[in-house]
């Protein structure tokens, strides 16, 4: 998908992760820009529909986060109280910690697996590669709410296939009640996220690899680099834009995660898989505390920015040290 999102962002807006301006010469205007006026006409239609149906409600949510509101009567303004309360809300910290752990499964593991698979897929022929690529991407097209239902059943300790296989191969001892185990429930749900994202990551990396200048490999080979060495020294550094895109998208997905966790565990057992988005749902739709729920949502959105900023910074440092 946006194999290129971040590149364009890096050039024009450098969002998310930093609206800071870098002192550098203004980009040269395109030849198309010089041609005439009415530039805004190209922006307005899309912007207008976006503003009406998305941005205004987002602004309203910010306002609501400053109020106490049960969703029915007129909200009462409470200033920053909701945010202050959040800082001493034990459950919110649990949700944040769980979300950080989920990031390993949403972001890190799919990235690593995706990059490894992309690296080794060249061992098979063109046709086989096409089939594999098609398969790997398949999970990504599924509605996550439906996936939750499927996997909840796959994990069932009594008649689910997962434990059935474990028992069949003599590993009955580790056939745990996955979704009811305080320790293992988060990795169990996380594994579904890995399954969902790894093929997507691989396809993005694969397309990135096709972009790499073959002469770089020739040069590396001339220097005596073996397969994995040239992967490490040539492929990986060249793939940094794709890594950044994949991280950007998976980080957003992890912080926005809801359907999968909701359908599999509802945040349980005992808050072991509670994440801010589930917490927001409970607060809003179950307890009618919409102001407080909106504050949770806003903090979550800010987190996306902070994490992406961190990634952006980290990657830049990496770029500099490796190039």
């Amino acid at each position: 998908m946006a194999a290129t999102t971040e590149q364009s962002i890096g050039d024009s807006g450098r969002i998310p992760g930093g609206t800071r301006r870098r002192a550098r010469p203004e980009e040269p205007a395109s030849i198309l820009d010089r041609m005439g006026k009415g530039n805004l006409l190209y922006v307005l239609p899309g912007l207008l529909i976006y503003a009406v149906f998305v941005f205004v409600p987002i602004l309203a949510a910010v306002v609501i986060s400053l109020t106490e509101w049960n969703g029915l009567v007129v909200p009462s303004f409470v200033g920053l109280q909701n945010y202050i309360k959040l800082f001493s809300d034990h459950e919110f910290y649990i949700a944040l910690r769980n979300n950080a752990e989920f990031m390993v499964f949403y972001c890190v593991l799919p990235l690593v697996i995706g990059i490894c698979l992309a690296a080794i897929i060249s061992v098979v022929g063109q046709r086989e590669r096409l089939v594999l690529r098609t398969l790997f991407f398949l999970p990504y097209i599924m509605p996550t709410a439906v996936l939750g239902i499927i996997f909840q059943w796959l994990y069932n300790p009594a008649f689910g296939p997962f434990n059935q296989i474990l028992k069949a191969v003599g590993l009955g001892k580790i056939a745990l009640p996955w979704l009811g185990d305080f320790t293992w429930v988060l990795p169990a749900v996380g594994a579904v996220a890995v399954w969902y994202f790894f093929g997507f990551c691989m396809v993005v990396f694969l397309s990135g690899m096709q972009r790499i200048d073959p002469s770089l490999f020739d040069a590396a080979r001339a220097d005596g680099a073996k397969g994995w060495q040239s992967f490490w020294h040539v492929t990986l550094p060249q793939l940094m834009p794709e890594v950044r895109v994949v991280l950007l998208l998976t980080v957003i997905a992890s912080i926005k995660s809801f359907d999968l966790i909701f359908t599999m565990t509802r945040g349980g057992p005992g808050n072991a898989t509670l994440v801010p988005n589930i917490y927001m749902y409970e607060l809003g739709f179950q307890l009618n505390r919409y102001g407080y729920a909106a504050a949770v949502a806003i903090i979550g959105a800010l987190l996306v920015f902070v994490v992406n900023f961190a990634i952006h910074q980290g990657m830049r440092r990496f770029d500099r040290s490796s190039v």
Binding site: I9, G13, I15, P16, Y50, V54, F55, P57, I58, A60, A61, I252, I255, K256, F258, N277, M280, Y281, G284, A294, A297, I298, G300, A301, V304, F305
Partner: peptide, 11 residues
């Protein structure tokens, strides 16, 4: 980009 970051549940 806000539209990509803020979950729909929030608004």
């Amino acid at each position: 980009t806000f539209g990509m970051m803020v979950p729909t549940e929030a608004f």
